[in-house]
Amino acid sequence: MKTISIINLKGGVAKTISSINIAHALAAKHGKKVLLIDNDKQGNTSKFFKVHGYDEPSIANVLTERNFDVKSAIKETEFKGLYILPANMNLLRADKEILLDVSRPQQTRLRKALEQIKDEYDYCVIDNAPDINMSVINALVASDDVLVPVKIDRFTFDGLEQLVEQIEDVKEFNSGLVLRGCFVTMFQRNTVNKQGDKYLREHTSYPLFNTVIRKTVRVDQSTFEGLPLLATRKSTAGEDYESLVREYLGEVLVSDTKGGARHGEI
């Protein structure tokens, strides 16, 4: 199972929408069995798939309960091959409990839990909070790749330097973690966005995917419908997420074939 963390310390960049649609594209277009983990106390990914609540186990239980059976918290979605581990506000309490519990390792709990199911899924996609807390650190320690959605504005890379530093720190526990790349979301074909995109590609050192996710009203509509973009009528953003996943899989294939430095090695 290859695990991908979707994260940006800046809000409003379509992080949750990206996590949902990347996971769904892997399942729907590539026939993969995918586990989508909601790792944000707001629980928006869980709400999208109508599994948000407090009566059943969530990722908070996975992170705080010793020898917890992670399978008991995973829910099946209505979309073939796509499963979800939900979150709720209990994750806020879980972050505090992890810090207070020094009786066992704090940073490797999610990785250890996912080892229970590593042969049952092809991919795991983690939707992370825009924060660096213990649950996010656990996600990075459990991940192979990091993908960073960015929106073109004057604050595009706010927090990215800190995120890169955190990735380097996490390598003490996960030496194979790679910043696979950033990808532009909510892209509009106007002068500002075109110039901004060109600047990012020519004047920054961060790896950047060729695919951009175009801004469309279908994205907002999909959140009300609870349907991933590729499960609704044709949309430009849906096509873009499909293209992004193909590009990502191509990068993975190249790196695995070469067995050497990868696209986003930092």
Rank of each mutant, 00 (worst) to 15 (best):
R66A: 04
P228I: 06
M186Q: 12
G12A: 04
L208E: 09
G196Q: 11
V184F: 06
H24Q: 13
V178W: 07
G181K: 02
E172V: 11
R218F: 05
I213P: 13
L179S: 07
G181I: 01
R111L: 12
F183S: 04
L229Y: 04
S143E: 11
L26W: 03
K112I: 07
L36P: 08
V219H: 07
D119I: 00
L253Y: 13
N8Q: 06
K96P: 00
N90F: 09
P149C: 10
V125D: 07
R246D: 15
I17R: 03
E172N: 13
Y199D: 02
K33S: 00
Q221I: 08
K33W: 00
K75G: 03
T204R: 07
E172T: 14
N61M: 04
S58I: 14
S19N: 09
S205H: 13
T223E: 13
S19I: 09
N21Y: 11
E161S: 14
G12H: 08
P149V: 13
Q221S: 07
A28M: 03
N90R: 14
G43H: 12
L177G: 08
I17Q: 11
R201D: 09
R233F: 11
K234S: 08
G81L: 01
I22E: 03
T257G: 09
A87M: 10
K151Y: 10
Y248K: 03
Q107R: 10
S222G: 12
L82E: 05
S72F: 09
R233Y: 13
I152Y: 05
V141G: 10
A87N: 12
I22T: 07
A261C: 08
K112W: 00
I37V: 15
L177S: 08
I17T: 15
S255G: 14
C182H: 02
F224C: 02
I266R: 14
P57R: 08
I117F: 01
G43Q: 09
N21K: 10
R104I: 13
K234V: 06
A23G: 09
R154K: 08
L163C: 06
D40K: 10
D101A: 09
G12D: 07
T77H: 13
S255W: 15
A113F: 07
A142T: 07
L249H: 05
D240T: 06
T223R: 04
L9F: 15
D119T: 00
K194L: 14
Q107I: 02
D256F: 13
L229N: 09
A113G: 02
